[in-house]
Design a protein around this nucleic acid. Structure first.
Length: 806
RNA sequence: GGGCGCAUAGCUCAGCGGGAGAGCGCCCGCUUCACACGCGGGAGGUCCCUGGUUCGAUCCCAGGUGCGCCCACCA
């Protein structure tokens, strides 16, 4: 064994061994209690990022812990076809060759996507493997697998049959590049410098000045069907009920009063363009106004724009501004900074358009899920995220589930020439209404999240009845990032309740968002991203897992490579103390036969740490567990226990000390294994009398037999601290003296410290404690144990002061 | 505009009603036969501000300030 632990090579070797020996595989129906994690499927073209790495570190720790505890663990994974994202990647590739998907046509394009995936897709699970994720890779599923597609079709038909899926014209977010609708959740918002234009709309009857209003998008003036003001706005009360003339198109439109208008903005008057603005769309509905669409799906002015048809919006802006300027209706233009919606994939500016789309009604679907959350049958952690999840589900609007892209699950909807719709899983022979055989399938595909919503049971074979589905539904927990709650978690919950009749998992861990070191969001486009595989290459997967776990504390945390280095030092420390014990234990077998204080003490400390780990992992409270392991290894195990027994190793024949040391090391390895699986398995394999791999060896039982020894070294540790600070020695019994000499080695330490500062410190402490104990109100009102603890402290300070001769 | 979170040592963060902590960085001393990715010691802090509750507040409550993330239809 080298004196420097090098994880490279060791980790890969164990990853291959564990998997090839089938130790990652789960067996349905084994009869053991199950621990099931359906891991979030990464995008099929995706690469590992810090979020994945953190997620795996947390989930795999829990999985490995439960595997050791004898649970049948199923850690399941696979890929998401990721509609827009994947299509976008392939389109970029096409563009680099000067081609477009339109030139290829739909069929050839989809074929190209499959080829692309064959070549570039499905690499991320190898990166999961490299993190040490103990997933059942043989059960990988893809949302485009035939069986999965069947599940998606079944769900659509099911919801349609209940009347919860319908088609309607609504205003939606349109991406002019992808030429598809997008849900609100697929947008990003960005601040832009723009101009706000104040335009006067004259009254149609020529009396007075008319109404001046402000707009950021003059081109949409062509689609104006009204002007709206707030009903309580005295400035415009005279205008309500009259008509104004829309510039350029010279259309007469009414002035209406509506509470949605913000009187504080601009002049307090709003041009109403239901065809191109969501709020205007609502105002239009309320006032029974027509919906006029003047911008087409390509983002340019359409036929309804008359002489401006075919122009870009910028050109149309200019033409309209010229028109109002000539007629002195351009009041002013001012700089205006505001946020605009962009497509999260291509960053195109989103066009609100009225469009015929498919919707999923949420009111009844969400109700049982809200109930399950309110009753705590599914719990989000931390609690603050639970409240957010419930609120956002409770307020979820109907869900636009159709997309006009090409890569995805095509809707199981067929239309005949008379416009009748037939909805069924497989291609129908004839129209269900008129019997026509001239059917055309809808070209729309489903929102990617519609299929993701089925993940926890579709990967188990639903709608078929399978042993996996029987054994592993509901699962145990799910881990994800905050922004995925509405997109995915809530939808899995209502889908599971609807189709399976029960929740998909009990707990959802919303993990920390790891920010870049400078506090900005990690993102490829900002250049603030970080490749976890670089960390693994440099420090090892064990160190990376440890570091990420220790960082996973509050809601947002800055990435800190120092913590990963700390993990590497921990692995190295463990490696070296193992070398010490192994090299001194030839012929011994692990068995706890403690005789002296330090032996009983380390067994007590190991058991206390076991309990603490169980507590924090059960509460999904990861950072304290990492801390505890570090402290146990460095301070307790190495600096005290190992130092204390070293001379006894050298003394020779003490078989009990060696057997106990091996047993203690075994327990330490077990406690560390869920977090640092590789280095612990490597050391484990070198211990004598190995019957099974550490990954499968049982988690230590609770062992209270040494609980009384948890404080066995207190006096020695006090004495050591005092001696090292000041050179003073307190009285110790013979056994305590032996440990003190072994650990402190007063023969080698220069004990010439100046006791003055220490005396000063102790006098202050004594004064403080005496003050408290002399306060009658403290003694009578504080809890008895607090008062008692204070008395003990005072006694100790006096003892130490005496040793210093003060 | 709403929700959530965070303000503690130079940095990154624990702690959380009774003596201010860790890792890193810095200074000093150790080539101690497991480990210099180590061992020992040290310097360094009005625990953001103002009130309140309490025998006692870094910790609980109220208000404020600053920062971050998420969400949102101010044209």
């Amino acid at each position: 064994m080298d004196s420097l632990y090098n994880p490279s090579g060791v980790e890969e070797r164990w990853q291959q061994t564990w998997e090839s020996e089938g130790l990652y595989s789960a067996e349905p129906g084994s009869g053991r209690e199950t621990f099931v994690v359906a891991h979030p499927p990464p995008n099929v073209t995706g690469a590992l990022h810090t979020g994945h790495a953190l997620q795996i570190s947390l989930a795999d720790t829990l999985v490995r812990w439960h595997r050791m505890r004898g649970f049948e663990t199923a850690f399941l994974t696979g890929y998401d076809h990721a509609g827009i994202s994947t299509q976008n990647a392939v389109e970029k590739h096409l563009a680099s060759q000067g081609k477009s998907r339109q030139e290829l046509g739909r069929e050839a394009f989809v074929e190209l996507v499959w080829e692309w995936l064959h070549e570039y897709g499905r690499t991320i699970t190898d990166q999961f493997r490299r993190m040490g994720a103990s997933m059942d890779y043989a059960r990988e599923r893809f949302t485009m697998d035939d069986a999965y597609v069947r599940a998606v079709m079944r769900y659509f038909v099911h919801l349609h049959g209940k009347g919860w899926i319908y088609r309607a014209n609504r205003i939606i977010n349109w991406c002019p590049f992808h030429e598809t609708s997008l849900s609100d959740l697929e947008l990003v918002h960005e601040e832009v410098d723009d101009a706000l234009t104040y335009v006067r709309y004259p009254f149609a009857d020529d009396g007075g000045d008319g109404v001046t209003l402000a707009t950021a998008r003059p081109a949409t003036i062509l689609g104006d069907v009204a002007v709206a003001v707030h009903p309580d706005d005295d400035r415009w009360r005279h205008a309500v009920g009259r008509e104004v003339v829309v510039p350029f198109v010279e259309r007469r439109v009414p002035v209406v009063a509506d509470e949605r208008v913000d009187p504080e903005f601009g002049t307090g008057a709003l041009k109403v363009t239901p065809g191109h603005d969501p709020m205007d769309f609502e105002i239009g509905l309320a006032h029974d106004l027509p919906e006029l669409t003047v911008i087409g799906p390509d983002g340019r002015m359409n036929e309804a724009a008359g002489e401006l048809a075919g122009l870009s919006q910028e050109e149309a802006d200019r033409r309209i501004l010229d028109w109002v300027r000539e007629r002195e209706q351009l009041v002013k233009r001012e700089a205006y900074r505001h946020s605009v919606a962009l497509c999260e994939r291509c960053k195109s500016r989103i066009e609100p358009l009225i469009s015929l789309q498919w919707w999923c009604r949420m009111d009844e679907l969400k109700r049982p899920a809200v109930e399950a959350l309110r009753e705590g049958r599914v719990r989000y952690h931390p609690e603050s995220q639970h409240r957010y999840a419930v609120d956002s589900l409770d307020n979820a609007p109907d869900w636009n589930i159709s997309r006009q892209i090409w890569w995805g699950h095509q809707l199981p909807v067929w239309e005949c020439p008379d416009g009748h719709l037939t909805v069924q899983e497989d291609t129908p022979d004839a129209c269900s209404e008129c019997g026509s055989t001239e059917l055309e399938r809808s070209e729309d595909v489903l929102d990617t999240w519609f299929s993701s919503a089925l993940w926890p049971f579709a990967i188990l074979g639903w709608p078929e009845s399978t042993p996996e589905l029987e054994a592993w539904y509901p699962g145990t927990l799910n881990t994800t990032a905050r922004e995925i709650i509405r997109l995915w978690e809530n939808r899995m919950i209502f889908s599971g309740l609807e189709l399976m009749g029960g929740i998909p998992f009990r707990d959802v861990i919303i993990h920390t968002t790891v920010l870049a070191a400078d506090g900005r969001r990690m993102s490829k486009s900002l250049g603030t991203g970080l490749d976890p595989l670089d960390l693994v290459a440099e420090h090892g997967a064990d160190a990376t897992r440890y570091g990420l776990m220790k960082m996973a504390s509050s809601q947002d945390v800055r990435f800190n490579e120092k913590v990963i280095q700390e993990g590497r030092r921990l692995a190295n420390k463990l490696w070296n103390v193992s070398r010490l014990i192994l090299s001194n234990s030839a012929g011994a077998t692990p068995e706890a036969r403690p005789r002296d204080a330090e032996e009983r003490w380390i067994l007590a400390r190991l058991d206390a740490t076991r309990a603490e780990l169980e507590r924090s992992w059960s509460a999904f409270d990861f950072a304290p567990a990492a801390n505890e392991l570090y402290h146990l290894t460095f301070d307790d195990f190495c600096d005290w226990y190992a130092e204390a027994i070293k001379p006894r190793f050298r003394d020779g024949e003490d078989a009990d000390v060696r057997a106990t040391a091996l047993a203690a090391l075994e327990r330490l390895l077990k406690l560390l294994h869920p977090v640092m699986p590789h280095v612990t398995e490597e050391i484990w394999s070198q211990l004598p009398a190995r019957e099974q791999r550490l990954i499968l060896s049982p988690w230590p039982e609770a062992d209270s037999s040494h609980a009384g020894d948890l404080h066995a070294l207190d006096r020695v540790q006090e004495a050591a601290a005092l001696f090292r600070r000041s050179g003073a020695a307190v009285e110790l019994d013979q056994d305590q003296r032996r440990i003190f000499d072994a650990v402190v080695r007063p023969d080698r330490v220069r004990a010439d410290g100046d006791p003055t500062a220490e005396i000063e410190r102790l006098r202050k402490e004594i004064a403080r404690a005496e003050g408290m104990l002399g306060n009658e109100r403290f003694v009578s009102r504080a809890p008895e144990d607090v008062v008692e603890a204070e008395r003990e402290k005072l006694a100790r300070y006096r003892r130490e002061l005496e040793a210093l001769g003060g």
